[in-house]
Design a protein around this nucleic acid. Structure first.
Lengths: 216, 216
DNA sequence: TTTTGTGAACGTGTTCACAGCG
DNA sequence: CGCTGTGAACACGTTCACAAAA
């Protein structure tokens, strides 16, 4: 199969969610136009995205909601369960654990690690927090995905340990792109960057407004 | 000035962080190559990104760390403070409040809103949680940025209220792209999507491996 | 007539490659 | 000689536009 762009995958995620809503509303068919409108995407984009994986629609009619939903579910790998290890039981880690959608979408947290002695041994969400030094032992747990919610300084080290323990995907909340070997997928959620990007945009428009005011 | 792409701004954020580190290490000059290597970006990309804003380097020598750091600080709008209102004092909201980098980068949370009566009136990080119904009153607080950390259902409504109260930027943690009028900047951090994107990637490589195994 | 699926056209961001300056 | 700054070439993602099918 041709390489699928990151943006296409993100949109599939959106389509999937729209389909769940529309399904709940009891609709049987949906057009690419209707699928598009909720996300500020064009209908051509929707059709192109879906066409990478097959021809799911019927000309003149649209897509069968239930069928397309199942297809996307399978394409996104959501019809299986993923074993997740969380490293870092601080604020972000705890927030993630409390997030119900996590388990609902097929992600099972099966181990929690932290380096802080005050946290090790505590029970969170039914799991006992392990010493981060024990991450190599995660190899026996067949972990698919590691979530890094540690301070920046520890992040790369933790990533290395997770990779050594056999994880194939890492979701990183530390504000730095980590180095992972080929074959391991990395996604980074960087809140600092989002804030700075907002700051940039606001600074720009404010400066522009000032100039316009001075000129007028 | 020409329109700056989202990806360029994100990279500026990275460069800025690298410069802070290099500055702390006491280095005076840095080349585009060195700036690039930590982020898996090419040196040409670094030079191109910076060139949109001016000529900060010296041919044959590179960039003065301290000078470039200050320039980026100004470009990103980090040499001023931004007034932030947080809506939703649940797990994610609390995690954000506890995040020290928030204030350090110039973002001051000056109001917290929630709809849950159990939370209203409680004190978090020195601020009393207000009833979300009072968001219109935020107009008097001159809020720049609204952070939405509410359940999905309330998110659009909250966004509308924030916009009406005069915010010019929104950082949204609800898993849906919200509708905001032109002139208001929206950034969405969607953890569900990141997880599903990981799931997709892992599912792909697993399937590919199976096929290769069957063929071999 | 409606709506899909898709090659072709287009636009935008990245990389190349080298002139220009220190 | 080293490294920046930048047009030109390239790659890639999006949009267009229309043939094909229901």
């Amino acid at each position: 199969m041709a390489r699928i762009s990151e943006s296409t995958v993100r949109r599939l995620s959106h389509y999937y969610r729209v389909l769940e809503e529309v399904h709940a509303e009891g609709k049987a068919m949906i057009s690419s136009h209707r699928l598009a409108e909720r996300e500020g995407v064009t209908s051509a984009q929707v059709r192109k995205d879906l066409s990478y994986f097959g021809s799911f629609g019927r000309r003149g009619l649209g897509y069968k909601v239930e069928h397309l939903r199942k297809e996307l579910r399978s394409i996104l790998g959501l019809d299986q369960r993923w074993r997740v290890a969380l490293v870092g039981a601080g604020h972000i880690g705890s927030a993630l654990l409390a997030y119900r959608g996590f388990a609902a979408q097929g992600f099972d947290v099966v181990a929690i690690y932290d380096r802080d002695p005050a946290r090790i041994g505590q029970k969170i969400g039914g799991l006992v927090v392990q010493d981060a030094a024990a991450i190599p032992g995660a190899a026996a747990l067949a972990i698919d995905i590691g979530v890094i919610a540690t301070p920046l300084k520890a992040a790369q080290e933790v990533a290395d340990a997770l990779v050594a323990a056999g994880v194939r995907g890492i979701l990183n909340f530390a504000p730095r792109k980590l180095f992972v070997p080929a074959g391991v997928t990395l996604r980074t959620v960087d809140m600092t960057m989002e804030l700075e990007s907002l700051s940039f945009a606001l600074h720009q428009t404010r400066a522009r407004r000032r100039r316009a005011g001075a000129a007028g």
